[in-house]
């Protein structure tokens, strides 16, 4: 799949933003006044910034409101509805903390659940697609939730939670990669099943057109194996290992900020691979091993 920068930016930033909102809604850290304002501002810049970035890849962003209508069948529509609900509820909760210095735990809990729900919906948009065997697994929502919670813990300054959640996210990420590398082969979709031709080896002889097309630009991105391995090491190193080391280092604010930045860079690398390595079965028609 083509790794579109807008979608990578969106899922990385909004994942961390909604992860932070989960912790704020649960009352960690229990802040009020100006400190609460700064925490909520960071969460909203990340979450809303991510949502806005995602509209950049639309052909008709001016019709985006229509995407709130099909929540009964579409995970993309559900993501829109749940994210707006989460942002509204958390805005009320945050206003209580900032202006009245008063926490409304029920509102916070509802906001935290909706924030988690938003990350789940984002993940399900990908996990529902049988056309991309690497994505079609329950591990995909687990991965998105684990990364969002780890990032949220870092941003919320919850060091003990982060020291548990970061390695956990790392393990889920490794499992997701290991499963993903065999997913297309296991899916049973091959050039033979795609064309229904049998009785011998089927080979793509000639594509339908000499130039490129939408399908090849969108689905047939290929990334070198060695290149991917390096990026995986970078993603895990920046996303999990370095933040853990920084959190264990002496000092408070500077290492924590560096840990959060390093983690976001690592998640962005992981998300780039999430798309770049994903093989869409339509690639088979063009004689590619997916990709």
């Amino acid at each position: 799949m083509h790794p579109a920068p807008s979608v990578i930016l969106f899922t990385t930033l909004s994942g961390a933003g909604f992860g932070l909102l989960v912790f704020l809604g649960a009352g960690f850290p229990a802040v009020t006044g100006w400190v609460a304002f700064v925490f909520f501002a960071v969460a909203y810049v990340l979450a809303v910034g991510g949502l806005l970035a995602s509209t950049f890849h639309l052909g008709h962003p001016e019709r985006a409101m229509k995407a709130f209508t099909q929540w009964r069948t579409s995970w993309l529509s559900r993501e829109g509805v749940v994210s707006v609900a989460a942002l509204l509820v958390m805005a009320l909760y945050g206003a209580g903390l900032v202006f009245q210095g008063e926490a409304r735990p029920v509102l916070g809990a509802v906001g935290a659940v909706l924030s988690l729900g938003t990350v789940l919906c984002t993940a399900m948009i990908y996990a529902q697609l049988a056309t991309v065997p690497r994505w079609k697994t329950w591990l995909t929502p687990v991965l998105f939730l684990a990364l969002a919670l780890a990032g949220g813990a870092l941003l919320a300054g919850q060091v003990r939670a982060a020291l548990v959640l970061l390695p956990l996210a790392g393990v889920v990420q490794l499992l997701w990669w290991l499963r993903g590398d065999r997913a297309l082969a296991r899916s049973g979709t091959t050039l033979a099943s795609a064309t229904g031709l049998g009785g011998g080896e089927v080979r793509a002889f000639e594509p339908p057109h000499t130039g490129s097309n939408y399908l090849l630009r969108e689905f047939a991105f290929q990334v070198g194996r060695r290149h991917a391995l390096k990026l995986r090491i970078i993603a895990l190193g920046l996303g999990v290992v370095l933040p853990v080391v920084l959190l264990l280092a002496p000092g408070t604010h500077v290492p924590a900020a560096l840990a959060a930045l390093s983690h976001l860079a690592g998640v962005a690398a992981s998300r780039w691979l999430f798309f770049a390595e994903a093989e869409h079965v339509v690639g088979l028609y063009y004689g590619r091993r997916g990709g």
Binding site: H57, T131, V282
Partner: peptide, 22 residues
């Protein structure tokens, strides 16, 4: 007139039957 051009339907189609007009 309702299509926002998100491209998700083309992602969901295994046959490459949908193409977004540039």
């Amino acid at each position: 007139s309702d299509c926002i051009g998100c491209g998700l339907c083309a992602w969901a189609c295994p046959y490459g039957a949908r193409e977004q007009d540039a």
